[in-house]
Design a protein around this nucleic acid. Structure first.
Lengths: 190, 190
DNA sequence: GGTTCTGGATGACAAAAGTCACATGGTGAC
DNA sequence: GTCACCATGTGACTTTTGTCATCCAGAACC
């Protein structure tokens, strides 16, 4: 519904044309390759996951297509990863609707558009302090899995899982697994 | 942005007029009382919380104003509470945008509009099994608080908190606190 | 060749978390 | 007036977590 509404809205602008819509990441990549649009506007939270991966794929397959990220949660880590994936813009959905069309025009003109408050947050937060393995273990514990579950799922010994979790908890400055997960999630580190 | 886009979209319909917009629950209630619209379209997740409470207040203060809930997460418990608050419609944002205007017309004609899949889920899930106090304790533990923290926050002894938590975990069929929180949240029981 | 880093593992230990049994008041329903 | 819950509390007990020290193998780097 949101996508449809935004598409209709953008279609009302004289100088913009919505050439396609897609419901998930994979479909977005396929459509971008087929249509070769000037710009692709992607969300991060999508069914089938990861608008950032989709962004990277589109950049690789269709270099002349600028990629813009429009997302609900302005997490510093998301911004960082989006930029690394070659995105030209990073906007959050709580800015006014009029800004969207304006941002698209600026991107088409070659500018990069980044929510200023978010840019500051991303710079002050610093990079993801978690090692890849710590990230895996923390990510595997989001929905209440026990140490044993995580160990089985990741083919590690329980002791190792405990160690990684302990390290992750310290690094993010949390007091236990749950706080660590919340905190890492809110920074976009998972 | 989403609100603005939907408002513009609805404004394009010949027979509908958007008379106001509000950014949070309190403002929505105040505006509804001032403007006395035919229908109010509310989200549940709002800054300042709880579109369902706002719905109930609007129903009480402006009885001729129908209240519709449009939300991202179609949780059975949300639907139940929305209906108890006197809502005339409960829609989820992943239905097509065209349906929204149609739903508004049906509500204005006196019908109740409910997402059918969600209605089934709400009926099969049954009512919230948690006692109010169990709900409080579980809700207080969402972001990683320890038993001691919760006890202090709710002015209970640690043993009592443990007992409530244990009961809640059993009732929702979870294996630990985190699973219980996730599960209760996904049902809309918190 | 030595140093350092990372991924992985073990064992020990303390601190939480979770379970159980049981006790006491209060509130409604029948 | 009894019965069934609820909210609240205690104490004992087991299981899970989280922390720490220490170890080993491979890769990278100088």
């Amino acid at each position: 519904m949101v996508r449809g509404a935004l598409a209709t809205l953008l279609g009302l602008e004289d100088d913009l044309e919505v050439v396609a819509e897609a419901g998930d990441g994979a479909q977005a990549v396929a459509t971008a390759i087929a249509i070769r649009p000037d710009v692709a506007l992607l969300d991060i939270e999508m069914p089938g996951k990861d608008g950032i991966a989709a962004a990277a794929e589109i950049r690789a397959a269709v270099p002349e297509c600028k990629v813009m990220i429009l997302t609900t949660f302005g997490r510093p880590g998301f911004l960082r990863r989006a930029m690394e994936a070659g995105a030209s813009a990073f906007l959050v959905k709580d800015s006014p609707a009029a800004e969207l069309a304006e941002a698209i025009r600026r991107v088409l003109a070659g500018e990069r558009v980044i929510d200023p408050g978010l840019a500051a947050a991303a710079l002050s937060a610093g990079p993801n302090p978690l090692s890849p393995r710590e990230r895996d273990v923390l990510a595997a514990s989001v929905d209440g899995a026990s140490i044993g579950d995580i160990a089985g799922q990741l083919h590690l010994s329980e002791g190792t899982v405990r160690n990684y979790l302990s390290a992750a908890i310290q690094k993010v400055g949390a007091r236990n697994r749950i706080e660590a997960v919340r905190s890492a999630e809110s920074q976009g580190w998972l």
